[in-house]
Structure formats: structure tokens, C-alpha cells
Amino acid sequence: MKFKLRYSEKIVGTFLIAALIIIAASTGYLLLHNKVFEKKFLFKAKFGDAVGLSSSTPVYFRGFKIGVITDYELTEDNYILADFKVYEEFRKKIVKKSALLKSVNPVTSTSTIEFLQGPENFSELAEGSMIPAIDIPEGEILLAKNMVKKTGDPLSTVIYNLAAFSENINKDNNVDKGAFFRALVNMADAAEGMKKITDNLNIDIESISKPDKYGRRPMASLVVNAAQISDSLRVMTGLVNHSLMRLDTVITAYSQPEGLVAKMIDPDGKQIIEPIRKTISNLNDVLPKLEKFSEFLVTQQGQFVIILKQLVETLDEVQVTFETINNGPLIGKPKSERKK
């Protein structure tokens, strides 16, 4: 403290002078940065509206501040005519067929003005000339002829593009006028139709899921029956296979009949044995086909079971899906009726 009191004058002097230097330096830098002392060239700018404009709205060209919009007024033809002051070092950038893009930032409601340079890079625009914004007919023509290209704040550009799209699609000379709304109406109709279908399906599913007067559930019964059929089919194909094997043995035995009974009944074999042999021979020809059919049935049994299983799973999923759709906010039941 003694040290401070002894040098208090010096400390306080330094404390105040340093603050003074900082503020003087900052103000000086700010004035230089804002090009207050730089020569400016006056142009006129024409906008469709004054939204976001202020008395010192900066104008940028490729990220550089090339000038400011100062005073602005409403003209007789309901456009905004503003003074556009361009700094000396950027004077040459102001060429013919250039335009301005004013985009209002939806977050801050401040506007950013972008200078869109025309194609004639060396044809300087005379001082005092008018530069149109692209939201007025003159600017729209430049844009349509691709003489200037739009750039700017990403969010504002998206909104501007959406606005332009909406405006263009609703123009009287546009054959697609109202297409967007028609699509919306169609979508609404489709949604309504889908709601009806899902409602009906839901009712059907509910009725299927409900037990009948005997306490049986049709859906469950169907699945059980299908399983029983599958099982019976498997047993049946097994039996068919077994019978076919026996038949094969019999046919083999009867194709060469050498027994006593055969000799007694039909010694030359032409009355009984031959016709039987022929029949059995024909039957023998059919056997491979029967065998193949049997094999086919055996192989298809697995497929059939899988299909039945898949059918059961699909029906479960369908039930869940319809439940979800039914509870969904778009076309489902009212909130009060949804399942908790």
C-alpha cells in the first residue's frame, strides 16, 4: 500500500493514459476501417422494398465491403431509390449490367446486400447511374439472361429461392399453376382413402382376433389347422412312400412268375399271367413318376411349413402395423381413443 501511495500519481496517470490511448486507437482504427476519410462515388440503387434497409447498410462483393447504402426513399412507382456510395478502391468493380441482391436475414431481420457484378468486367458504369436489385423487373431481366449470378447468406438464399419458386409456380402464364396445391389435395385425398382402408382392415383384424361364440379365435384356429394339415401331410407322404416300396417288391416278384399255382392255373401264361404281367409292367413304368411325385410332396412339405410359418409371422406384423397406423396422429384414431 505504501508503494502504491508513493507512486500513486504515476500509477493513476498510467492507468488513465493507457485507457485514453486504447480508446483513441480503437476509434482511429474504426474510422479507417469504415473508410470514413476515403473518397466515395455515388450511385443509385433501386429496390423492391425497404425491408431491412438502414441508413448505413453495407454492400458486399465477394466478402469485401465495397460501399454503403445511405439515404433511401419511396418513389412514385412504389420502388425504393437509395444512394449507394462506393469506396474509391472498388470503383472499377461497378460495371454495366450489374445488380444488387438484398437478402433479409430471418434471424436478425437485418439485410445483407450483395453486389452482383455484370459480365462486362471492363465497362465501368457511369457515376450516378442506377443499379437495380434483382427483386425489381430490371434486375429480374439481368438474372433471367444469366448476366448476374446470385450469392449470399445461405439461409436467406434458401428462403429467397423458395419465395421465387412459390411466386413463379403461381404465375398466370405457368401451365403448372396450382400444381403444388393440386398435389397437396391429391395427397390429402389419398391419405383419406388410406385412412378408410386401414380403418376397415383394422375392424377386420379386430374381428378376426376376437373369439367367436365358442370362445375360439379364428386366426389362432387357422394357424393351428394349418399346422395340423402340415403334420398330416407329412405322415401321409411317409405312408405313400412306404406303400410304393412294397408295391415295387410285389411288381418285381410278379414280373417273373415261376410258382406252382401259376403253372396250374395258366400253364402257357397267356390267359392270366401275360395280361397281369403287362399291367404290372405298365404300373412299373408309372412307379418312377409316382416316386417323383412322392419326393416332390416330401420336399414341398418343408416349403409348405415355412410358408405357413411366414404367413403366421406376416399376420403378426400386419397386426402390429395396423395397430401403429391406427394409433398414428396422421390418420389414426383420435388421441383419446388410442391405446395407451
Binding site: I23, Y29, L30, H33, N34
Partner: peptide, 18 residues
């Protein structure tokens, strides 16, 4: 940083602060 910062500062900000 200073360039971007001073782009946002106006004389009225300094006056207001003072």
C-alpha cells in the same frame, strides 16, 4: 479477428459505451 470484430463495431457503439 479484429477485422471481423471492427466490421461489427460502429461509432455509436463506442459513443454509447462512453
Amino acid at each position: 479477428f479484429l477485422y471481423k470484430l471492427f466490421s461489427e463495431i460502429s461509432v455509436s457503439d463506442i459513443t454509447s459505451s462512453f
